[in-house]
Design a protein around this nucleic acid. Structure first.
Ligand SMILES: [Mn+2]
Ligand SMILES: [Mn+2]
Ligand SMILES: [Mn+2]
Ligand SMILES: [Mn+2]
Lengths: 218, 218
DNA sequence: AGATAAATTTAGATGAGTCTAAAAAAATGA
DNA sequence: TCATTTTTTTAGACTCATCTAAATTTATCT
């Protein structure tokens, strides 16, 4: 079995490898796990001994098949628990991430599969992220950040790139939650801020920074 | 905050104090936590520093009000999660204890209270143990082990004293589960084994050891 | 009471995970 | 290219929870 700590490293390496490509750096792992590079190096040796990562000094790391499988199982648990918390316990989407950080380490695979069934096999978590099935399979819908859209494009909000509670609360407040349709009507030359028409005929303006972190299907 | 380990010590001290009386011994804690007496002594010093237990060398320990409150909160979580696992995820009563040992350490009080509400404020867990409310209050029903009944007494099974899966599976198999009515018809002089009439008119014989661990209301 | 046994604590060691400071390797760029 | 900066690893130390072995205290029994 792997400790919480080992699981968190594997999960971080997995998430980083999705963003940064196959191999990830010691420093990026340190940032993601809120530790120091020296601590990461120690852990990388251990994970390499366990054959959960490919690691050669100074060359960065990547997950082995086993490592990746474990990481995805943790992501599955994280997202299923988030779904449970929102759908069954009525938490808001900005309240569940920290709780899921704990719940994702509950070990029983049987529990996860039964939870999955109880929830009726949800495909996406409250933030629009795909929930892997019990074989670790999932498909990431093809989404674009609002910042990449051209003027007049219509899209439906399907996910977010940033999960910080403050960001999610902000989106809630301005009405940009998952499932909502938006039309991009203007991109300001000056600061690249973006004007959107909402379904309810309201018009809002959001900064490029916010626009980068909202994902839509078109 | 307290570590998992500290929480488990507090919980063990609480359970032991219910059985053995107010103050409990180093050795009994060692047995309950599957550690050695020397390790227990180390932890007792730490818990005493945190004012969670009353501790004087060689004199045994008891929980402070704070310590007891924390212990009961953990028991509340344990039993609510067990109820959830059985009622919502369809686990059997012999499968949930180990899972609850992990889930009881999830920290959020908000989560527990919402879970309680979601489950419609259950009063007893799948083994008949009372579930403390969010103020730590609960009442233990007045129950007797079958081994303490006189011949011809009728009782309803309300709980068990032993939680080992093998024991619970055995009870399931012979039809002695919670809610069932029994009538004690005979106590054997030789080995104190006990004959019971069940609701379905079947007659079964159980050993004194089994009888001691089944609790009934009369 | 005094001897022996049992329970408990202390002493010293270990492994996991972390840190800071220093050394080594790799990347950058004039 | 080679000096400087950045990244990564090593060295050594610390905390937490655990252990074994030895010392100490308390309990028991004749
Ligand atoms: Mn999350
Ligand atoms: Mn999520
Ligand atoms: Mn239990
Ligand atoms: Mn129980």
């Amino acid at each position: 079995m792997n400790s919480f700590t080992e699981e968190n490293y594997l999960k971080s390496i997995y998430h980083l490898s999705v963003i940064d490509g196959e191999t990830v750096s010691t420093n990026s792992i340190a940032a993601a796990t809120h530790t120091k590079a020296a601590s990461v190096t120690d852990m990388l040796k251990k994970l390499a001994d366990k054959k959960l990562i490919h690691y050669a000094k100074y060359q960065g790391v990547s997950l082995t098949d086993t490592g990746k499988q474990i990481a995805i199982a943790i992501v599955r648990k994280h997202r299923l628990w988030e779904f449970f918390l929102v759908e069954k316990l009525n938490f808001k989407w900005d309240e569940v991430h920290e709780l899921a950080e704990e719940l994702e380490h509950i070990t029983s695979a049987e529990l996860v599969d039964r939870l999955d069934k109880f929830l009726d096999y949800p495909k996406y978590d409250p933030h629009g992220d795909p929930i892997p099935d019990n074989n670790g399979r999932f498909k990431q819908a093809e989404l674009k950040p609002i910042s990449a859209l051209e003027v007049n494009t219509v899209g439906i909000i399907m996910g977010v790139r940033e999960h910080a509670p403050a960001f999610l609360q902000h989106l809630e407040k301005i009405g940009l939650t998952i499932g909502n349709q938006i039309q991009l009507t203007e991109i300001a030359d000056y600061d690249h801020s973006v004007t959107l028409n909402l379904n309810n005929n309201k018009t809002i303006n959001i900064s490029r920074d916010v626009a980068k972190n909202i994902l839509v299907s078109i």
